[in-house]
């Protein structure tokens, strides 16, 4: 069964005479229970895809289906209970004047769900946050703890799909490992579907079996991670992205420079 199906998703930003096409006919499918990766460099539009699916942008064109049902542009409460999102910067995604308790109770109140206390206790345990942190403000938490709160907030409505926008890129590696483990555990237990955006191919490789490589608003290819790491990707860009992530290599840098000069910015073809 397909959890997320995106077809010909396009979005344009800017005024009439200064338009930029940020997404150009993006299509991919994510199976239920899968962790699907979106990689690309800055400006590739990977985060924009997430925001369209989440419902934060409303002026996209194309088709987005969730569990087979097409969704409209407007954000509905039903969609909120199905899809939630975790943002990149744990310092900017929590309200500075709300305690953990207030942050987690708000969605329950909005959706008229009772049993607030028990639900919060449960979700804090799920993300591995000590109960005594429950009445702290964000500035009293470490980066890793904040990101756990952000994950808890996304989980508290018990969605079936989690959109993860660079969830660990602002964290130290040891904290990143903890947060990635939490995400894996939750998925194993609840059977959630993840759509994971990252610029770090190692993180994508750790979490995902399949991924889409994006460049300048286009999907270059959808590829199995095993193929990508085995050097069997179709597109030159995908292979180069993988190699560049792997290690520093003087000759590779020369190749990139040469490709940039020839291709005028983008790298095309096999």
């Amino acid at each position: 069964m397909t959890a997320i199906s995106v077809k010909n998703l396009s979005i344009v930003f800017g005024e009439e005479d200064n338009e930029t096409k940020v997404l150009d006919a993006v299509s991919f499918d994510v199976e239920k229970g899968e962790v699907f990766g979106l990689v690309g460099e800055s400006g590739s539009g990977k985060s924009t895809v997430l925001r369209c699916i989440a419902g934060l942008y409303t002026h996209w064109t194309g088709e987005i289906r969730i569990d087979g049902q097409p969704v409209g542009a407007q954000l509905t409460k039903e969609r909120c209970r199905k899809i939630q999102m975790v943002f990149q910067d744990p310092y900017g995604s929590l309200h500075p004047k709300h305690t953990v308790q207030t942050t987690l109770a708000a969605p329950l109140r909005i959706h008229g769900i009772g049993d607030i206390d028990r639900r919060i206790t449960e979700v804090l345990r799920d993300v591995g946050l000590a109960p005594h942190l429950r009445f702290r403000y964000p500035h009293q938490l470490s980066g890793g703890q904040r990101q756990r709160v952000a994950i808890a907030r996304a989980l508290i409505l018990r969605p079936s799909i989690l959109l993860l926008d660079e969830p660990t890129s602002a964290l130290d590696v040891s904290v990143q490992a903890e947060v990635l483990n939490v995400l894996s555990d939750i998925r194993d237990r609840e059977g959630l579907t993840y759509l994971l955006v990252s610029h770090d191919l190692a993180v994508i490789g750790h979490m995902c079996r399949r991924l889409a490589v994006m460049q300048q608003g286009l999907i270059e290819e959808v590829v199995d991670y095993a193929d990508l790491s085995g050097g069997r990707a179709q597109q030159a860009y995908s292979r180069m992205l993988f190699d560049a992530s792997h290690h520093y290599d003087r000759s590779m840098a020369n190749d990139i420079t040469a490709a940039r000069q020839a291709g005028g910015g983008t790298i095309h073809g096999a």
């Binding site: 040891s174 990143q176 490992a177 903890e178 990635l180 483990n181 190692a202 490789g205 750790h206 993988f242």
Partner: peptide
């Protein structure tokens, strides 16, 4: 050692990342 181990690897897949 812990720092190195906690890094996700490009070339090998592990179910869980060791935590320091």
């Amino acid at each position: 050692r812990g720092l190195l181990n906690s890094l996700p690897r490009l070339d090998q897949k592990r179910d869980r990342l060791p935590v320091i």
